[in-house]
Write a protein that binds this DNA or RNA. Structure first.
Length: 471
RNA sequence: GGCGGCAUAGCCAAGUGGUAAGGCAGAGGUCUGCAAAACCUCUAUCCCCCAGUUCGAAUCUGGGUGCCGCCUCCA
C-alpha cells in the first residue's frame, strides 16, 4: 500500500505523512466560535477533519483528535448584550446547537473538545511565560506579543513583515486607541483588559480576557503537548490565527508547534464566501430539513478539501439523487438469508481487492475523497451487475464498510413511514390495488397510485408485485 | 499594494508529462397495462487565451484574461 501524503501549508508542498512518535497521531482542529447557528461552511470543516481522523484510525494509527470550542470572544459578548443575556448563556446555547448539528451529520465526537473558558489558568501561565522569556510585554493591563522577537513570523501565511507593517500602519490610523499601547502595529493581544462588569478573569495584569490566538496555543500545549502532528482548520485561519499560534508556541517552546498544517477551503455561494458577515449562509439545521446527512456529507466530500465548493440547492439535489444508487447497492448486504453458504467468487474477491487498493490510493493522496467516492460508485455498479447473491452480499458489505470510513451512515431514509400501522395500511392498500390490476381495473389502480404519490409514497410495480418507498 | 488559490462537457467535479475518473442532467434500450423506479448502452478529439519546452502537455515554463480568498472577527 502506498504511503499517506498530505499537503502542508507550511511548506506549500505535498509531503509524506510521518508522525512524530511511531503510530501515535496528535491532531488538533480549530472549531467554531459559538455565537450563532452553524452553517454549511462549519459543516465542511467538521466533516473534512472528521474524515481525516477516521481514515487515520482506519489505517491503524492511534489518533488523539482534539477540536476546540471558542466560547469567549468579543463577538459573543456583543451578541449577548444585544440579546440581553449573559455571554455564558449565549455560548452554551450555541455550543449545544453545534453539538446537535454534529451528531446529526454523523461527525464523531473528538477525543477532547476543550472550551476556551476551561483553560484560562493555562492561558495566563502561557502569557506569563512569554513575558518572562522576553516575547511579550504588558501595557496598561493588556499584554501583547512582541512580533519582532520571533524572527520566523510570517512563515505560515507567507507574509513579509515589512509589507504587514505597511498595511498595519493604515489600520493603526483608524484604530488609534490601541496603537499607542503596542510597540509595533503588528503585535497582537495575548490578554486584553476588561471592565469588571464584563466577562473576564483576574490575572497578574488585572481583570481581562485572553486573546483568541492564545486560546488554541494554550489548549494544544495542555492537551496534546508542545509538538503535535496535524494542526487543521479553515483556510481563513492561516493568517493571522495560525501564524500567531506558531509565534506564541514556538517562541515559548523553541520547537515546531505542528509537523503538518492542513487547511480546508470554503463553501461559496455565487462564487462568494459563505459567511455570517455576508448573510449568505445556509444553516445546518435548515439544510437537514430537506437533505439527508449523507447527502450533505457526500456533497462536501465530492470536492477535494482544498478546493472551494460553490453551493447551490441544485447540486445538493444532484448529490441526493446519486446517493440512492449507493444505498440500493449497499442494501444487498442485509438482503437474502442463506447468503453465507457460498464463498464469494474469485471475480468478486478480485473486484473487492481492486476497489480497496484504489480507495486507499485515493485517500493516501492528500485525502482525495472525490476519487474514493467515485470508486464507491464503481463498486456499486459491480454489485448490481453481479448475478450471484453471495457475491452481491460480500461486495455490498465491502461497500458499506468503506462508506463508513468516510462517515456515511448509509441509512436508507426512504422507508420512513411514521408508524408500523402506517406501513401495514400501505401494504394493505397495495394488496387491494394489485387485485384491481389483476381485474384490469386500471382506473382504480392508477387512482390509488396517484393518491399515494400525493401523500409522499412512491409506488413501483415490478415483476414480483408492487413495492413502495416514502420520500 | 503584498501573499495565496482557481479556470476541465449543460451543471458539479477528479486528473500535475503518455493520450480525459465519477456524479447529476440528456439520448436510446430492457422491463411494464401505463407510469415511476431499477438495470444496460451512449454522451468532452479535447481541458480560458497566446507563445515556448518535449517524441509526447489539461498537466511543465513565460505572458495574458477572468474569478476567488487572506492581509480585520470568520471554518
Amino acid at each position: 500500500m502506498s504511503k499517506i501524503h498530505v499537503f502542508n501549508t507550511l511548506s506549500g508542498k505535498k509531503e509524506e505523512f510521518i508522525p512524530l512518535q511511531g503510530n501515535v497521531v496528535k491532531m488538533y482542529a480549530c472549531g467554531p466560535t459559538v455565537y450563532d447557528l452553524s452553517h454549511l461552511g462549519h459543516a465542511r470543516m467538521a466533516i473534512v477533519w472528521d474524515v481525516v481522523q477516521r481514515y487515520l484510525r482506519f489505517v491503524g494509527y492511534d489518533v488523539t483528535y482534539v477540536r476546540n470550542i471558542t466560547d469567549v470572544d468579543d463577538k459573543i459578548i456583543r451578541r449577548a448584550s444585544e440579546l440581553g443575556i449573559t455571554p455564558e448563556k449565549l455560548s452554551r446555547q450555541y455550543t449545544y446547537k453545534f453539538w446537535h448539528d454534529m451528531q446529526k451529520l454523523n461527525v464523531e465526537s473528538p477525543d477532547f473538545e476543550p472550551r476556551a473558558t476551561e483553560f484560562i489558568a493555562q492561558m495566563i501561565a502561557f502569557t506569563q511565560a512569554l513575558i518572562d522569556g522576553g516575547h511579550a510585554y504588558e501595557a496598561e493591563g493588556d499584554v501583547y506579543f512582541d512580533v519582532a522577537s520571533f524572527k520566523e513570523y510570517g512563515k505560515l501565511g507567507k507574509q513579509n513583515l515589512e509589507q504587514l507593517l505597511v498595511g498595519a500602519r493604515d489600520q493603526a490610523v483608524a484604530q488609534e486607541t490601541l496603537a499607542h499601547l503596542k510597540k509595533s502595529p503588528v503585535d497582537f493581544a495575548l490578554w486584553k483588559s476588561a471592565d469588571v462588569s464584563e466577562l473576564g478573569w483576574h490575572s497578574p495584569w488585572g481583570y481581562g480576557r485572553p486573546g483568541w490566538h492564545l486560546e488554541c496555543s494554550a489548549m494544544v500545549k495542555r492537551i496534546l503537548g508542545e509538538t503535535i502532528d496535524i494542526h487543521a482548520g479553515g483556510e481563513d485561519l492561516v493568517f493571522p490565527h495560525h501564524e500567531n499560534e506558531i509565534a506564541q508556541s514556538e517562541a515559548l517552546h523553541g520547537q515546531p508547534m505542528a509537523r503538518y498544517w492542513l487547511h480546508n477551503s470554503f463553501v461559496q455561494t455565487n462564487s462568494e464566501k459563505m459567511a455570517k458577515s455576508l448573510g449568505n449562509f445556509k444553516t445546518i439545521q435548515d439544510l437537514l430539513k430537506t437533505f439527508s446527512p449523507d447527502t450533505i456529507r457526500l456533497f462536501i466530500l465530492q470536492s477535494h478539501y482544498r478546493n472551494p465548493i460553490d453551493f447551490t440547492i441544485e447540486s445538493l439535489q444532484a448529490t441526493g439523487t446519486g446517493i440512492q444508487r449507493l444505498l440500493r447497492a449497499a442494501a444487498f448486504a442485509t438482503s437474502g438469508d442463506d447468503v453465507d453458504a457460498e464463498a464469494p467468487s474469485a471475480a468478486a474477491q478480485s473486484l473487492a481487492e481492486t476497489f480497496k487498493q484504489e480507495f486507499a490510493e485515493a485517500m493516501n493522496n492528500d485525502f482525495n475523497t472525490a476519487i474514493a467516492i467515485s470508486q464507491l460508485y464503481q463498486l456499486a455498479d459491480g454489485i448490481t451487475q453481479n448475478p450471484s447473491v453471495s457475491d452481491k452480499h460480500y461486495l455490498a458489505n465491502t461497500l458499506l464498510h468503506y462508506a463508513k470510513v468516510l462517515g456515511l451512515t448509509m441509512v436508507d431514509t426512504r422507508k420512513n413511514i411514521d408508524s408500523e400501522t402506517g406501513s401495514k395500511l400501505i401494504d394493505l392498500i397495495l394488496t387491494l390495488r394489485s387485485e384491481a390490476r389483476a381485474r384490469k381495473d386500471y382506473a382504480s389502480a392508477d387512482l390509488i397510485r396517484k393518491t399515494l404519490t400525493e401523500i409522499g409514497v412512491n409506488v413501483m410495480d415490478g415483476p414480483q408485485g408492487a413495492t413502495w418507498e416514502s420520500v
